[in-house]
């Protein structure tokens, strides 16, 4: 019975990890893209994304 409980616990933990790890990767990538398009200070990125930054109300200039 004890072994069965451990098995259930491990399966739940495995499912949780399977769910959370991609979600955290998604959050990191999402924020990376958001910071890149909306907030990066490099002139090249700023000038390319300029109009979109204004449209999305990201602080610009």
């Amino acid at each position: 019975m004890n072994n069965f409980n451990n098995l259930v616990k491990d399966t739940n933990r495995g499912e949780l990890v399977q769910r959370i790890v991609p979600a955290l990767c998604g959050i990191c990538l999402g924020f990376f893209l958001l910071l890149g398009v909306g907030f990066a200070d490099a002139h090249l990125i700023h000038n390319a994304a300029h109009d979109a930054r204004h449209a999305h109300s990201f602080p610009c200039h």
Partner: peptide, 9 residues
Amino acid sequence: ITAIAYSLL
């Protein structure tokens, strides 16, 4: 890219 970022989040 902005829309993809929001979708990912």
